[in-house]
Structure formats: structure tokens, C-alpha cells
């Protein structure tokens, strides 16, 4: 079967120069059915194929690790082990209630006064100290983490990179995968490709991605036993920050305005999750950051 697919792929490659667009599409389809096959194909079109195809879970994890390393290069972890452990306990619990409980979920609070959160493909999620300090209870933290977890579950960042400016950088990174040695593939991606792909955090996702993450995240937080409307309180707090405040500029420029997100939640979720609104809000273990 694999042999067959390889010949098909190679045959398609040979005709590619003549009828490139259509056949390339077919080839990409074949590769999507069998991502491993990519390693068997080589040629000048490799880059385009790589940037278009479905990315396998291992590649997603390696790219995600590289992107997380880049964000940590911009702002390191808050030097507070108790905080980091607490955020992992809450995040891993929420993620365990999702459709992908076995992804390698990791959470961290990074040392920046800016208010923002970042999800990277494969399950590494970083929120800033500035955002953490706005949170009043564990349900609000769970709401924020569930939003970021939803971005990971829906592959929003990988798709945005594929569709945007980071596409070529990702093609380069993926092309390298075949030659990477076993082990820490993220380190072998290279700083240039990582920098190119990190552009997604500066340009932001589609508005729909953000609304979808809010709405799915609310149900996910409810599954973990929290009041899902805690996210509404977080968005109301964000909305109250003066947009001219430097700490919210990147977040506001990469997300729909908090009030637009509230309007969307109002319109789509409304009272649909109210039977879960009696869920937990405050917990004794909530970690207050001075």
C-alpha cells in the first residue's frame, strides 16, 4: 500500500511541471491521507507541499516547542515554582476534560506586565503575569486556560501559519524534519524558521478563531466543574482597561475587542450554560501573586 502511494506520488510529481496546479492538489491530498509519506518524496515542490499539508501530531509538538522557546526568549517564566505548579494543576485538569486528554499539556506564567495569553501547537500554553494578576479566582484562570486549550484543540495557530506569512518558514521547518536526528526536534528547526512562524503571535488569529475558542472554552471550563461565566468576568475586566495602556496593546491588536467577544458570547451562548453557573468559582488552592 505504501509502495503504491509512493509511486502515485512520484508519478504525480513527474507530470507536475505540465499541469502543476491540479496535480499538485492531488498530491497534497494523498500526502494528507498519509503524512509519513512526505519523507519519501523529495523535490523542488517539497516546500509548497509541506506548507499545505496536514501537519502530524509529532511535527505540531516540535513546532509548538520551538514557538514556546521563542516566547520564553522574549519573556522568561516567573521565578515562582509554586505558581507554575499550580497553573499546571489547573490547566492539566481542564485539558483532561477535553477530547485530547493525552496531549502533552504544559502551562506557564511568563514574566511580563503585559496582559496576554499564548497557545502553541501541541499543547504548551503561556499566559503573562499581567494577565494572571487580573484574575480574581480559579474559575477565571480556568476560563482563560480553556480558551487557550481550545486554540490548541482546533489547530488554530498551525492553520494560521499555513495560511499566512509564516508559511514559508514552516515549509522550511517541515522540510528539515526528514533529516532531523531523533530526539529534540524543536531545537533543530532553527532560529530563522521559528522567528518566521512566531509572526502569528504578532499578527493574531482570525476573529472567528477567537470567538470559537471563547465559546468552546466556556463549555470546557464547565466540564471541569467551574462556573463557565467566569470568562465573561475576565472579558469585562479587560474591557475596563484603557486601550491606550501599553500593557494591552498587543492583546487588543491581535484579538477582537473584549466587548465584541462579550456580544458574541451573549448571542451564541447566552443562557445555554446557566445550569452550570453554580460551578466552582473560588477555591482554597487559588494562588495569589503579589
Amino acid at each position: 500500500m505504501k509502495q503504491n502511494l509512493i509511486s502515485l506520488a512520484l508519478a504525480t510529481l513527474l507530470v507536475a511541471p505540465l499541469t502543476h496546479a491540479l496535480d499538485l492538489g492531488k498530491l497534497v491530498d494523498e500526502l494528507n491521507k498519509n503524512p509519513d509519506l512526505v519523507n519519501a518524496v523529495s523535490g523542488a515542490v517539497q516546500n509548497t507541499i509541506d506548507a499545505n499539508r496536514t501537519i502530524g501530531p509529532k511535527e505540531e509538538a516540535a513546532i509548538g516547542d520551538g514557538l514556546a522557546a521563542n516566547l520564553l526568549g522574549a519573556a522568561p517564566l516567573v521565578n515562582d515554582a509554586a505558581l507554575q505548579r499550580y497553573v499546571n494543576q489547573v490547566g492539566a485538569w481542564v485539558a483532561s476534560r477535553s477530547e485530547a486528554p493525552n496531549l502533552s499539556w504544559r502551562f506557564g506564567v511568563i514574566d511580563s506586565p503585559n496582559v496576554n495569553g499564548f497557545a502553541t501547537p501541541g499543547g504548551t500554553i503561556l499566559i503573562t503575569r499581567g494577565l494572571y494578576q487580573k484574575l480574581n479566582d480559579e474559575a477565571e484562570l480556568a476560563g482563560v486556560l480553556a480558551h487557550e486549550i481550545s486554540h490548541v484543540l482546533l489547530h488554530h495557530h498551525i492553520r494560521a501559519i499555513q495560511a499566512g506569512k509564516g508559511r514559508e518558514a514552516m515549509g522550511n521547518a517541515l522540510q528539515g524534519f526528514a533529516s532531523y536526528k531523533q530526539g529534540d526536534t524543536a531545537r533543530q528547526i532553527g532560529a530563522n524558521a521559528l522567528s518566521g512562524m512566531s509572526e502569528v503571535f504578532v499578527r493574531g488569529l482570525d476573529k472567528d478563531d477567537e470567538y470559537e475558542a471563547d465559546i468552546r472554552g466556556m463549555a470546557l471550563a464547565a466540564r471541569a466543574g467551574y462556573n463557565p461565566y467566569a470568562l465573561v468576568s475576565v472579558l469585562q475586566a479587560l474591557s475596563a482597561i484603557n486601550p491606550a495602556d501599553g500593557t494591552v496593546q498587543l492583546m487588543f491588536s491581535t484579538h477582537p475587542a473584549p466587548n465584541d467577544r462579550l456580544n458574541k458570547i451573549d448571542q451564541v451562548v447566552g443562557d445555554k450554560l446557566e445550569r452550570y453557573a453554580t460551578g466552582a468559582e473560588e477555591t482554597q488552592r487559588f494562588y495569589r501573586l503579589k
Binding site: 521563542n70 516566547l71 503573562t128 499581567g130 512566531s198 504578532v202
Partner: peptide
């Protein structure tokens, strides 16, 4: 803080 420039110029850690 964590500005667009800082992310663009970051080196992986």
C-alpha cells in the same frame, strides 16, 4: 513588556 518587537526579535530559549 512583551511587545510585538520583542516577539519578533526573540531568540529561542
Amino acid at each position: 513588556g512583551l511587545s510585538a518587537e520583542q516577539i519578533e526579535n526573540a531568540k529561542p530559549n
